[in-house]
Design a protein around this nucleic acid. Structure first.
Lengths: 213, 213
DNA sequence: CTTTTATCGAGAAGATTATATCGATACTTT
DNA sequence: AAAGTATCGATATAATCTTCTCGATAAAAG
């Protein structure tokens, strides 16, 4: 259950289900529930119990026959596995609506994400503070990344500006990019790209609506 | 290439790639490019050409050997397939940071999404206008949905309020839910649920960062 | 006009992901 | 204490998704 260099043995599908389990498990923990079985978890999400066990296996937590898994143990293990027990600093570029929404999202600290600075190329936005963070001019981005050794870049700029900003980030040493811009990005192997593009999500919705008459 | 009742023969993966192709194709169209091959498209995204052809097949557009696909044809067909050439009205509940960001997202009209009203349970938010839309009290949601026959509900409320709001929406006849709340939702079969939960996306990012030492 | 080449679509093969089966185990019930 | 049962982990099977192969075809080159 390890990542072997560039080849993650844990599938993206599993990775996306882990936070779902975690949220539920934290609620159970708060209620004082001590153990939970894969059967119960599966029922909550309409998953298959075997799938749940396979997913949880990656965390290293082992269950007991006829009893299930320790809720507290799972919570810690999942959070550890996802890296949510340590802090990940990030810079955000593009203080538009989406950028502001992310800057204002308090819960990120629960997931170890710490947006340390925001940048914008629009001089009118620079200088103002948005949710306790000063907005810096884009020109200062490379220096800032190098100085603070921040690893994550959050991209909330319009489509046409996405690639140039990414290139700045990459040159300065960013290791992972969380992309909210509706643009395909070119990034070298080794850098992690996670797209959170609304249009992809929307496509699933509208196409289903369209085709069910 | 049809949806047969509850069983979509087009995979979610394909559905999520179609908007990527579309964005690029629209750029090509603007540049006056007439034809494009699966090979070229594949190179742009680091996909496999066969996969691109399989994806495009669902739209009904057929290519020509040695030539490729008509860009203009693909653009129309993909947009048709995704339902982005018609208008889908939606209501949004939860005028927090994320809700405001979505209300302010101008590009939705390009995708046929039209947020007709916003609701919030916080009386202090009610009455104000956010991006040209008045914020209405949550109590009016059911009546509004029934009267306007809106099909899509966008959920941008805190986790604990998610399920109750969903229940209101379902009772009033909502057919599809776009969920941004970090909560697992219980919805009956037949209703479309698309999760756009930030934490799932974040999990992929932070876990990769964590496990690559 | 013939050969070469790039690309298509269809179908086969391969890889990945999800589900089913089953012996072992730990708790409950009788 | 023995029998019954729910659940585990391991392994096998099934389903899905991706990639490869190949004959057909349309344009370009010779």
């Amino acid at each position: 259950m390890l990542f072997v260099s560039k080849d993650p043995v844990v599938s993206r599908s599993t990775l996306k289900r882990l936070p779902l389990y975690l949220h539920l498990l934290e609620a159970l923990l708060a209620q004082g529930v001590e153990c939970v079985s894969s059967t119960q978890l599966a029922r909550e999400f309409n998953f298959n119990p075997t799938q749940v066990r396979k997913d949880l296996e990656v965390t290293g937590e082992v269950g007991k026959a006829r009893v299930g898994f320790r809720v507290a143990g799972l919570v810690v293990r999942i959070r550890d596995f996802l890296g949510w027990n340590s802090t990940h600093d990030a810079v955000l570029v593009g203080v538009g609506n989406m950028g502001k929404a992310l800057l204002g999202y308090k819960d990120f600290e629960k997931y170890g994400l710490n947006i340390v600075a925001a940048f914008d190329k629009d001089v009118r936005k620079v200088g103002a503070t948005t949710f306790d963070r000063e907005v810096l001019p884009l020109a200062q981005l490379p220096k800032f990344i190098k100085r603070t050794k921040v690893h994550i870049g959050i991209l909330t700029v319009p489509a046409r500006e996405a690639q140039p900003v990414v290139d700045l980030m990459l040159a300065a040493g960013i290791k992972a990019i969380w992309n909210f811009a509706p643009a395909p990005l070119r990034i070298p192997a080794g850098v992690i790209l996670e797209n959170a593009r609304l249009t992809q999500s929307l496509a699933v919705l509208t196409s289903h609506l369209t085709h069910q008459n």
